[in-house]
């Protein structure tokens, strides 16, 4: 049983995002990249499946800024192998359809039984990867997955439907799943372990298949902009004590404070 976990880096949304001078991408020089949080969930689920069924876990990523760090962290947490697909420009925003076109041939050759990805990434302007990739490979798929259990030739999946409802389904392998949350919170790898793994090296570099020319699925991004803060909150200034006093007044004036 081989499980691939497809991972990628995303700008850290806690930091400010600047728009580049062309106006159609963020300024990548200034961005701090971190692992997509949902990939961390996908990896955790894969590691839980490895523990219960002995599956091999292979993490796969395109060569993107700071991705080595994420791949080594995955090995430190228990992934068996880490693969980096090289030779693709990594200095601009890449659409989901482009990413999927590059990943699909690798996934096919890897003879994976199960492919896990994060449910979405914050820059998924043209759709989410799991569905597009499954479409290209002709595989069954499910997104917003919060539970995975391996059977012999199938996988039992729980998908959240929203509003607290969920659905269970049994899907034939191989399949592609977009993970929302693993069954338990993602584990941490000690820094010392990550350092040790990084020193040992061991990321496999594989030349990526060149993606086909932008296909019918291309959209044209005219501009990126910071949303107008039309309905912006009235900001309360002052010391925490003063701000607390104002909030208390607001709540009292609306009769929301008991006693």
């Amino acid at each position: 049983m081989r499980i691939l976990v497809l991972m990628r880096q995303l700008p850290d949304l806690v930091e400010e995002l600047e728009i580049s001078s062309e106006g159609t991408d963020i300024d990548r020089e200034l961005v701090k990249f971190v692992m997509n949080e949902f990939d961390d969930q996908a990896l955790e689920e894969a590691l839980l499946l490895k523990e219960s069924s002995g599956a091999e876990v292979v993490v796969v990523a395109l060569d993107e800024p700071d991705v080595d760090q994420a791949l080594y962290t995955a090995i430190a947490k228990g992934a068996d192998r880490a693969v980096k697909l090289t030779g693709v420009s990594n200095e601009r925003w890449m659409s989901t359809h482009e990413r999927a076109a590059i990943l699909a041939p690798y996934v096919e050759e890897s003879a994976a039984d199960l492919v896990l990805t994060g449910v979405q990434a914050a820059d998924d302007l043209d759709g989410q990867l799991a569905g597009v990739l499954a479409g290209l490979l002709g595989l069954p798929h499910a997104a917003v997955v919060v539970g995975v259990e391996l059977k012999d030739s199938t996988v039992l999946v729980t998908q959240e439907l929203g509003g607290g409802r969920s659905v269970d389904e049994e899907i034939d392998l191989p399949a592609v799943l977009g993970l929302q949350a693993a069954r338990q919170a993602p584990r941490y790898a000690p820094i010392s372990k990550i350092r040790q793994v990084t020193q040992a090296g061991g990321i496999e570099e594989v030349a990526a298949h060149t993606p086909p020319e932008a296909s019918a699925t291309a959209i044209s991004l005219r501009r990126l902009y910071v949303p107008e803060r039309s309905g912006h909150a009235e900001m309360l200034e002052g010391t925490p004590g003063e701000v607390a006093e104002r909030i208390a007044e607001i709540l009292r004036s609306r009769g929301l404070v008991k006693g």
Partner: peptide
């Protein structure tokens, strides 16, 4: 999320999410 991406391959069409 499930169907938009997969349909965009089978019924070739750009997707905006």
């Amino acid at each position: 999320i499930d169907v938009a991406g997969a349909l965009s391959v089978a019924w070739p069409a750009p997707v905006v999410s």
